[in-house]
Design a protein around this nucleic acid. Sequence first.
RNA 1: GGCCCGUUGGUCAAGCGGCUAAGACGCCACCCUUUCACGGUGGAAUCAUGGGUUCGAUUCCCGUACGGGUCACCA
Length: 472
Amino acid sequence: MHIGNLRTALYAYLLAKKDGGTFILRIEDTDQNRYVEGATDVIYDTLRACGLNWDEGPDIGGDYGPYIQSERMGLYKDYAKKLVEIGKAYYCFCTKSRMETLHEDQKANGETPHYDRHCRDLSAEEVQKLLSSGAEYVIRQKIPTDGETSFNDIIYGEIKTPNKDLDDQILIKADGMPTYNFANVVDDHLMGITHIVRGNEYLSSTPKYNLLYEAFDWEIPVYIHVEHIMRDSTHKLSKRDGDAYFGDFVKKGFYIPAIINYIALLGWAPKGEREIFTLSELIKEFDVSGISKSPAIFDEVKMKAINAEWLRALSHDEFKTVIIPYIKETVKREDIDFDLLADCLQPRAELLTDIPEKVDFIDSVPEYKNDLYISKKMKTTPESSLDALKMLLPLLENTDDFSFDSIHAKIMEKITEAGVKNGVILFPLRTALSGKAMTPGGGTELAAILGKTETIKRIKDGIAHIEAEVTI
RNA sequence: GGCCCGUUGGUCAAGCGGCUAAGACGCCACCCUUUCACGGUGGAAUCAUGGGUUCGAUUCCCGUACGGGUCACCA
């Protein structure tokens, strides 16, 4: 599911839930040429994964079903015929090829392509004759030739359009299926839709919908058109970017509630200064007055920051549950302190996919050079590190309680005794235990995570490692 | 091209006639520190443009520029 569509769905959901309304899922599949196997499952799965649960829909039913338009087929044509009867629509027998040449000619003359209303004034007899001859037809909306139609949008206010700029759009296609433009109006009325949240590409066709509502004498819903999400100032976030889909972001290691949180903020601003919200907090906070009129550029860097904040805000248990699968990608051993590891990882994880690399030293120490023991800041060298490790070894060998607090206390005591900077001792320990320049925790944390046996082994290995190179 | 919509730091944005023009991300510096982070403090950086209206315009009106949308038997 495209991230823009998801955001629109999110706003619709938030609006419905905020006002105690009903969130309905309707599948609009009136174009059989565009049928894609499994597409509806993606919709179901995505909305569910995000927690946007619908109150009525194809799979769960409701009082206004069916909720799949292709299953409501016959109904639209009846309504279209009703429109024909009251003179608001008409049968059109123009072929597709006539329309093509017509549009080409119009373009050649510098006109915008539109229907020339060729069949608009056919007599009832002519229509009847053609109909009984089995001629293919569509039903078109009969737009008034003069005057103007206006509609009100919550975000943009009143928008007026001269009727002469409106085309006699097709309501029922030659295959008997309704167009979106028609099915949408009929179903929204029949399903009791009160608020329409949609992308603002529909802004220019909304006057035609209003004409339809008026013709049927139906109540016009509240319109809320939202701007697009952009890749940059001139391009919409689109399929071409390869990263515009919800599923892509999940794969990249974004945490779903954080994705929802971020996209809610793209084009909408909460009242206060807080910006981290759960779905239910968003429901409370949401207000259409905060929706922006201008497009928003998608910023993955900002989304990452939101993601990191989300991860940090999780409880220990929640965080641990979320990251265990990622840890398991590179860590097979079980005899480590996963709780402490999780605590160390929590302030350092931006994306969930950062985690496997961060813990890849736990199963075994990677190859490294003695240079790794050199730190200008910590004032360490391989030689000083050798001394530090040799000092630490007996100390830890004589330590049975290998909890972080215990080790930490013992080591700090020793450091104070020795009268050196913490880093001089702890930096080498961290290096020997990890073989890495950056680790999710310092020497004492790593020791506690790895446990006594592994820590002792790695300190000995570290000593050997330094000695081997130093003597050469 | 016609019609419609929009334009506050690099990005998301608050603002709704009078403010030193919030906040967040990013960036820079410093502090904290057992690496890297987290956290803390500070900093640089914005009202597209020209006319009005007004005692006073980021805010209201008009034009211009720029950007977006739309003009299907697609949604």
